[in-house]
């Protein structure tokens, strides 16, 4: 009974970790890196929205394009 419970707990924990890995990274780790970069940028440089907003948008659209282009090459 104790062994069964431990094995169930282990599977549950692994399933939980796998869910978060698939959700955050999965087959598009570039979006994870991009998001962390954007969060760091906006938290650290709060001064000028005139600079941050275009930077965030260009970074997002640029990484999205690179990700699409890479996926296209893989086909």
């Amino acid at each position: 009974m104790g062994k069964d419970f431990l094995s169930w707990l282990k599977n549950l924990s692994l399933g939980f970790l796998k869910f978060w890995y698939d959700f955050l990274i999965g087959d598009t780790p570039e979006f994870f890196v991009l998001t962390i970069g954007i969060v760091l940028l906006v938290v650290m440089v709060k001064t000028s929205s005139l600079f941050i907003i275009p930077a965030v948008l260009v970074a997002s659209l640029g990484v999205l394009w690179l990700s699409l282009y890479h996926a296209r090459i893989k086909q």
Binding site: F31, S60, L64
Partner: peptide, 11 residues
């Protein structure tokens, strides 16, 4: 979290 999810759906 929304950005990661949204960009991967969009892709």
């Amino acid at each position: 979290l929304l950005m990661i999810l949204g960009l991967s759906w969009l892709r």
